[in-house]
Each structure stands twice: as C-alpha cells, then as structure tokens.
C-alpha cells in the first residue's frame, strides 16, 4: 500500500488539537508558577547556614533529577493517592507533577543565580544594618532574579514539552488529544506531525518572548 500525505487531515486536526493545547498551557503555567515558589524555597534552603534545610534540599533535588519524570508522574498519580487514601483529578495531578519536577531544576537555577552575586553586595547590605532576610530581599534577590531569567525560560520550554508525558495519567493535553484523533482516523503521520508542529510553535514563541525580555533588560541596564 502506497503512502499519501493527506494535507486536509493535517490541517483539520489542528483546530481539534486546540482543546489539548489549552490543557497543556494551563498545566505548564500552573505547574511552573508553583514550581517557581517551590524551587525558590528549595534553592534558598540549599544555601542555608544550618545543615538540616540543606540536607532536605539536596535530597529533594537529587531524587527528582535522578529519576525519570514518567516514573514521578506514575508514582504521584497512582502511588501517593493510594497511600493517602485520596483521589486527585488528573489536571490537578498534572500541575503538581510539573511543579514537583520543575521545582528541583528551578532550585538549582535559583541557587546558582544567588551564589553568583558578589559577596560584597551582601556585606554592603549588612554593613548598613539590614538583616539577613532584608539583604536577600532588597539586594541579592533582585539582582539574582535577572540572571535567572534565561535559564527559567529554558525550563519553561522543557516543562512544556514534559507535559506530553502526562498523557499516561489521562490528562487531555496536546499529545493525548492527538492520540484520540488517531484512534478514530488512523492517520498517525499527519496527526502526530500536526501535534509536533503545534508544540514547536509554542516553544518557538517562548524562545522569542524570552529574547525580547532579555533585550529589554539589557537596554535598561547592562547588569
């Protein structure tokens, strides 16, 4: 049997994929927002003076970075609810999984950025009587945050692509929506190509947005 690429299937599947795109975006944004708070907390814990918060942070980061996200997703969606005797809706679970996973990588981004700030900045802050937390809040964090933007943008793209793994827990995101279309029309080539194109459109938009933000910051100040 000869293969014919069917453009009409390709184009018709794109609007149908938009339902999935919506979930992909909601999960990515929700997961990353939570992941940023988690990552900031864990990243700062890794820089703490006391050993206990440092150990907690290191354990968390290593556990997440050293295991496949697919396993994390299965564990959090099927395993943890069983232990706790609760049920989590797939969308919520998806957001939590992205948050927990990206949090570990964002923690390293935060730690690296904070550590990259000249210790003289902290000394100057402390020398005018600011407390440790005031020095972090008003002096170190704003400077570190600027340096976090490029790697955070990178993590944005990674997490967006990672949401495709959530199809295994039944979240109706982009890839799962594509799979459902294929189940009906059997046009795997056209539909999955359309899925790939839609992912690419999103990741390229993020990359472009990121460059604009970076240029804007560069114009404001060279630091």
């Amino acid at each position: 049997m000869e293969f014919h690429f069917d453009w009409s299937v390709f184009f018709e599947s794109i609007p149908m994929l938009m339902r999935g795109v919506k979930f992909t975006i909601v999960i990515t944004l929700g997961g990353l927002s939570l992941g940023f708070f988690l990552g900031a907390l864990i990243g700062l814990m890794k820089l703490a003076r006391h050993a206990f918060p440092r150990t907690v942070a290191i354990t968390y980061i290593e556990a997440i970075r050293g295991t496949p996200m697919l396993v994390q997703a299965m564990f959090l969606y099927y395993g943890v609810p069983m232990a706790l005797g609760i049920r989590i809706p797939p969308l919520t679970a998806g957001i939590i999984i992205i948050a927990v996973n990206s949090g570990a990588y964002i923690a390293e981004i935060v730690r690296g950025a904070v550590q990259s700030i000249d210790p003289g900045q902290t000394e100057a802050g402390r020398s005018i009587g600011l407390t440790r937390s005031q020095t972090m809040l008003y002096i170190v964090w704003p400077q570190a945050f600027k340096r976090m933007i490029p790697p955070l943008g990178n993590q944005f793209i990674i997490s967006l692509k990672d949401t495709s793994l959530l199809m295994v827990i039944g979240v109706g995101e982009l890839l799962r929506t594509g799979q459902e279309i294929v189940a009906v029309n059997f046009k795997a080539f056209e539909v999955y190509l359309a899925v790939a194109v839609v992912y690419l459109a999103m990741t390229l938009s993020i990359a472009k947005g990121l460059r604009m933000v970076e240029n804007h910051l560069d114009m404001k100040t060279t630091r």
């Binding site: 003289g120 900045q121 009587g129």
Partner: peptide, 20 residues
C-alpha cells in the same frame, strides 16, 4: 549586631554600590 552596624558605617575598596 545590626544596630552596632548602623553606629559603625563601612566604606569598601570596591564600593559595593547596589547596581539595581
């Protein structure tokens, strides 16, 4: 100590101004 530091100001070799 934070109060003591307000009584004893410091000027650094590398200025350490807050660039932002």
């Amino acid at each position: 100590i934070n109060h003591v530091r307000t009584e004893a100001g410091m000027v650094f070799q590398q200025f350490n101004l807050f660039p932002h």
